[in-house]
Design a protein around this nucleic acid. Structure first.
Lengths: 140, 140
DNA sequence: GTCATTTAGTTTGACATCAAACTATATGCT
DNA sequence: AGCATATAGTTTGATGTCAAACTAAATGAC
């Protein structure tokens, strides 16, 4: 029960959350998608198209990582890549119809996750938690 | 500022913590060591020798991952591997003299990390944070 | 005592990830 | 206009990670 344990707890919780998400997706028949792929798809629900650089910034992953992640999503048929006509360096990523079908699945997994995550946590605790974590985040 | 953000914050904080640790180690002249290697060495400060299975359990990583991590530590000269005479399936991992020299470095990095992490966080907040995170952890 | 099962660890194959080097294109300066 | 610089993405190489298959050794049931 030392203060140091908080850091370890944070790692472990993150791990549990990731495993939960992947497992729930598999239960709903969605295979081969990790949390980073999910982050990309989630971003595309809100913005119909994003460049590789946009995605990199959004999901906090290196651009070369994004190349690999998006290429996998293309392979799985969830998104498409298209070059900009004017600035041919730019690539736009957008959801395919199959990708759009994931939205309700994501919604339900997200709901289940939050229900479990916040089980027996009061509103005040939720608020405190958010405030404290934000302070810590800004310390770095 | 939604409740959902907490999960994303946790991921980001964990990422920051890991980067901080690795960067501080490099500053102190220790290269090639990631946080998982650090976890192994840290465990060996407290227990003079551990089996591969012990380590796997301690650091929450697959046993095959532990094989790779420990082999790297052997290559870097920080630990040694030795088979048990009686049960030759078992391998003991222990710190080398070079590995033991890391203890003060770890101490100082750990202190710096905690100082930064808890900057401007009151004792009450620390306690609340630990309690809430423990509850969440046990939800999974 | 022999055979099945369990246990400890390694190997293999796949993939996420990053950093550095690279390609191609656009922009800016003169 | 022409060259230097900046920007967008990809490729390459290294590493951490897991799961599944594998090897070797110990345990247990009969």
């Amino acid at each position: 029960m030392e203060t140091r344990d908080v850091i370890s707890l944070i790692s472990k919780i993150r791990e549990k959350v990731n495993r939960f998400i992947v497992a729930e997706m598999v239960k709903q028949g969605i295979n081969g998608i990790g949390t980073s792929h999910g982050d990309i798809i989630y971003a595309l629900f809100k913005q119909p198209r994003l460049t590789m650089a946009d995605i990199s910034k959004r999901i906090h992953k290196d651009k070369s990582t994004v190349t690999a992640l998006v290429d996998k999503l293309v392979r799985l048929g969830y998104v498409t890549k298209e070059r900009d006509r004017e600035d041919t360096r730019v690539v736009y990523v957008a959801l395919s119809p199959k990708g759009r079908e994931l939205e309700p699945v994501f919604e339900s997994v997200s709901t289940e996750l939050l229900d479990l995550f916040y089980l027996n946590i009061s509103d005040k605790e939720k608020e405190d938690l958010l405030n404290i974590l934000e302070k810590i985040y800004h310390n770095f």
